[in-house]
């Protein structure tokens, strides 16, 4: 199963990044995995912090933390935005 990422805004740098998994995992587990992977990648430390506040969405809806990712899919990473 391949999960590809499409980041918006401050998470734009994640575009094109993908990960292969042998077993299904929840959004919560994927977030933790992604944070671990990015923490060892130079230049991504700020994104690791931001990731804890990001939402994940497929192309139709924002996913809950318990949503099971069990097929090849594109995940949109929606960063927190608080300005006005």
């Amino acid at each position: 199963m391949k999960i590809s990422l499409h980041g918006f805004g401050s998470m734009r740098a994640l575009r094109g990044i993908g990960f292969e998994f042998v077993a299904p995992l929840t959004v919560r587990e994927f977030r933790a995995y992604l944070q671990t992977q990015l923490s060892i990648k130079p230049g991504f430390s700020e994104l690791v912090i931001l990731l804890s506040s990001c939402a994940f969405a497929n192309n139709e809806q924002v996913l809950t933390e318990d949503t099971l990712l069990n097929k090849d899919q594109l995940l949109n990473v929606l960063p927190p935005v608080c300005g006005g």
């Binding site: 912090i49 931001l50 804890s52 506040s53 924002v62 933390e65 927190p80 608080c82 300005g83």
Partner: peptide, 23 residues
């Protein structure tokens, strides 16, 4: 339901900037 955690300080205009046209 969607914004489950408080955004970090970097999520504000004073820290990260903002484009007028986007507003």
């Amino acid at each position: 339901c969607w914004q489950i955690k408080a955004p970090q300080a970097t999520a504000s205009c004073s820290v990260s900037g903002v484009l007028g046209a986007a507003v």
